[in-house]
């Protein structure tokens, strides 16, 4: 294919990606070093009230925003270097926590709190997703043909459902006097308050994620199971391999590329977890890195968005992605090169 033809085919897509992915990245990088604030001036204002004999006058020093001729607030953009980063990382409090070696104090700073939760969340859910996905795949593979269609249909529902709503549907089972909470209370004869307990919320968020992603792992591994070599299985059996050994030494090695693929996708997606925080309203207990940026971007009561802090936390999140994906990406790079 000539370069010109190639460019015409690929052009629109590349332009879109440059304009809406690469360009915003540059803006974010620049914004993370800048702060835009309204300009204030301090003025001495003398206010006088009519009094008896003489006026009573008070002089106050007021800070008022400067307005331009249209009546809009004048804003000025300053280059602040790494101060937004320092701000996001916790500044003073961070250095104090490090000096005291106090992890609890560190975990009170939003960024570290988010980082702690996001990493735990990503790494803890991964094995559960893989094991549950593989178990469902094995079991469905084992089931009779007539029920496979409906079973796959039901299994796909948690995966296809809008993430916020999936999280909500589990929240409604547990929060307040949710039905499952009532059952658990009856079972253990205690009083549970799920929404008030940070660890319970954390567990529910992980539970939701496993529930949501396991069908994805299941579908892929189930497709992989269809291509397992029957002859290898049979010869393993003749050699006296038990069921477990056949799974361990024939089936799982065969599925390994797929397991790596699921791991890669899961790392990418769980690292940018966000909908869980909205669905479980967990912002007072547990937040994720992506939620941190979202929170900075939300307008506060005065309608200001902390663009600079948001950009800094976005850049820090990106660094995490790069670290997380360096190894798998190099693999793909080599595979594609070789292909």
């Amino acid at each position: 294919m000539k370069f010109k033809t190639f460019a015409m085919f690929v052009g629109p897509s590349v332009v879109l990606m440059l304009l809406f992915i690469a360009f915003p990245l540059v803006t974010v990088l620049i914004n993370s070093f800048q702060v835009t604030n309204p300009v204030f001036i301090t003025q001495e204002v003398e206010t006088c009230t009519p009094g008896f004999v003489t006026q009573t006058c008070t002089t106050e020093v007021k800070t008022i925003p400067v307005l331009d001729e249209d009546g809009d607030v004048v804003r000025v953009t300053q280059w602040v270097g790494f101060s937004s980063y320092a701000n996001v990382l916790g500044g003073e409090r961070f250095s104090r926590a490090i000096a005291d070696l106090d992890l609890g104090q560190l975990a009170n700073i939003d960024f570290w709190k988010a980082l702690r939760f996001t990493l735990t969340f990503t790494l803890v859910t991964l094995p559960f997703v893989l094991v549950l996905g593989l178990s469902i795949a094995l079991v469905v593979n084992n089931a009779s043909k007539s029920i496979k269609g409906p079973v796959i249909f039901v299994s796909l529902l948690p995966f296809i459902i809008t993430p916020v709503i999936g999280a909500l549907s589990i929240r409604w089972l547990f929060y307040g006097d949710g039905i499952v909470t009532v059952w658990l209370e009856a079972l253990f004869d205690t009083n549970l308050s799920v929404a008030a307990n940070g660890w319970a919320v954390e567990f529910l968020m992980m539970f939701y994620r496993v529930w949501h992603v396991a069908p994805f792992a299941f579908v892929i591994l189930y497709a992989g199971l269809q291509t397992v070599n029957r002859d290898t299985l049979e010869s393993a059996m003749i050699d006296g391999a038990s069921r477990w050994e056949r799974l361990r030494f024939v089936i799982i090695p065969h599925l390994m590329p797929l397991i790596v693929f699921i791991t890669l996708i899961h790392l990418m997606d769980a690292y940018r977890a966000f909908e869980e925080v909205i669905g479980f309203s967990s912002e007072s207990h547990r937040i994720t890195l992506q939620y941190l940026t979202y929170d900075y971007l939300q307008p506060d009561d005065a309608g200001n968005r902390q663009i600079s802090s948001a950009s800094a936390s976005a850049m820090l999140t990106m660094i995490g992605v790069v670290i997380l994906l360096a190894a798998p990406l190099r693999r793909t790079w080599r595979d594609q090169r070789g292909a």
Binding site: L25, F274, L297, A314, T317
Partner: peptide
Amino acid sequence: ALPHSVLVAG
């Protein structure tokens, strides 16, 4: 792999 919030911040 980019988190969408990074892009929205841009």
